[in-house]
């Protein structure tokens, strides 16, 4: 994957070969500028590789036209961003309902579904609150609800805990690894936060645009230990 042109070309990713299975929480770690964000942008279909193959949920994103890629994201991908990216003018429940509205649902139909999910995430009392009236942890829970409300098959979390304190970071990862993760859904978490490494099924480490190691994470190791 290259950026720029001529003499200024920068190779962001090289030779990355990565599979993520349904029901798996893959954590993508590595130093800043190693290509983590570029990789998840490609997996999410928001960026196209300049070469190579890209199959996400069995779909060849490179072969799709822009409209098809937009539709693919709308139907299959949920996002949790580092800075939440909630719409400041919408209430918590309205923010959580956005993906359903993008998918063409009416507000009348979408808001109760979003409200149910927010209640499961412990925000039943803050449905009508604006993002500015919520703490960082609460905003991230709204973002989680927004990422899950349309039942995506792939959840991409970009530094979901980096703006949160330890307690809120732990709560967020608990929610991601329990409510978000399911047998039909894969979760990719990009993070620098070593406090949350324990929630990974697998850890993929990147350096200088390359995938240098993929190893089982703490969750998988403890699950394997329980089986034996």
């Amino acid at each position: 994957m290259d950026f720029g042109a001529g003499d200024t070309v920068t190779r962001a990713l090289r030779g990355v070969d990565l599979d993520v299975a349904p029901g798996e929480l893959l954590m993508l770690v590595g130093p800043s500028g190693c290509g983590k964000t570029t990789l998840v942008s490609i997996v999410a279909g928001t960026l196209l590789p300049t070469s190579g193959e890209l199959s996400v949920l069995g779909c060849d994103l490179v072969a799709m036209d822009p409209r098809q890629r937009v539709r693919f994201r709308r139907e299959n991908v949920g996002f949790i961003f580092q800075s939440y990216n909630l719409l400041p003018a919408l209430t918590a429940v309205e923010n959580a309902a956005v993906p359903l509205i993008i998918a063409g649902w009416s507000r009348r139909r979408a808001l109760p579904v979003a409200a149910d999910l927010l209640e499961r995430l412990g925000l039943g009392a803050r449905l009508r609150s604006l993002p500015s009236e919520l703490s960082g942890g609460q905003q991230q829970r709204v973002a989680i609800a927004r990422a899950l409300v349309h039942r995506p098959r792939l959840l991409i979390c970009d530094e979901p805990t980096s703006a949160l304190d330890a307690d809120n970071g732990r709560v967020t990862m608990e929610l991601i690894s329990t409510i978000a993760l399911g047998p039909d859904r894969a979760v990719i978490v990009v993070t620098h936060d070593q406090r949350v490494y324990g929630y990974a099924d697998r850890m993929a480490t990147m350096e200088d645009g390359r995938l240098v190691s993929i190893e089982d994470g703490a969750r998988r190791r403890s699950a394997a230990a329980e089986e034996t």
């Binding site: 999410a44 996002f79 990216n85």
Partner: peptide
């Protein structure tokens, strides 16, 4: 712009 970017990432097309 970030909100519009988020909407685009979540599957809102340029036409919308």
């Amino acid at each position: 712009i970030r909100q519009f970017g988020a909407l685009k990432a979540m599957g809102t097309g340029n036409g919308t």
